[in-house]
Write a protein that binds this DNA or RNA. Structure first.
Length: 210
DNA sequence: CATGGGATTGACT
DNA sequence: GTCAATCCCATGC
């Protein structure tokens, strides 16, 4: 797989979050297509980097194109792509994948810990689920997303021009109104709640201009 | 050094 | 809908 170069990430984090929809993430024997992302930037308080440079946020302020991996709620591992020029603390949280290959290994790793019967659409439908399925750990923090072990490649095939809808970010308590969550429209692999179509007569999905 | 709070998930009522 | 699990780290004394 060709991997995206570092300068892909050295751009405004909202652009990168949108453009990562449809790209491929792989780690070892498994991989999938990104169908959901969220953008975080040190200018807003939901971002870890809001507090400035600390041991935890050092990666976020570092060069773009690296993985920022951290533990959430003591249990889950979350994967981000560091964005914007070095010195800016910004990243894109990878929230869900459509599994592409290595599904057997993903089922095995997901069922290993706690999860009961796992359906394919739930293999990677959440930021903690996908790292567990791919076998990503905290050791990958700071690694290059071009050189691996976790790598991200460009859109291919049916994913060259995905329809993208946006909504507000999930699971945060500050800056809750920013519409910085990006999802592939109509993908069954997106985590809940789905952002687009409110129930009943919802407003139409908001396509992202580009 | 002690404390508190999560960018979540799965099980359960 | 509710809730606990569990670890890293930021903060305050």
């Amino acid at each position: 797989m060709d991997a995206l170069p570092a300068d892909f990430y050295a751009r405004p984090v909202l652009d990168v979050a949108r453009d990562l929809i449809g790209c491929t993430v792989e780690h070892g024997d498994a991989g999938g297509v990104i169908v959901e992302t969220e953008a975080y930037h040190d200018s807003e308080p939901a971002c870890h980097a809001f507090v400035g440079v600390t041991p935890r946020t050092r990666t976020l302020f570092g060069p773009p194109g690296r993985a920022y991996v951290y533990r959430s709620y003591g249990i889950h591992v979350l994967l981000n792509a560091v964005c914007e020029p070095e010195g800016v603390g910004a990243g894109v949280l990878i929230r869900a994948l459509a599994p592409s290959f290595g599904l057997d290994a993903m089922y095995a790793r997901r069922q290993l810990r706690g999860a009961g019967a796992v359906r394919e659409r739930d293999l990677c439908s959440g930021p903690g689920k996908l790292t567990q399925a791919l076998g990503v750990s905290l050791r990958e923090n700071g690694c290059s997303l071009a050189r691996g072990p976790v790598r991200i490649g460009p859109r291919q095939g049916d994913w060259l021009e995905p329809r993208v809808v946006l909504g507000t970010r999930i699971g945060i308590s500050r800056a809750v109104d920013l519409p910085w969550r990006f999802c592939a429209a109509d993908s069954p692999y997106v985590s809940r709640p789905r952002p687009q179509l409110a129930r009943g007569r919802g407003q139409a999905p908001t396509p992202v201009a580009r």
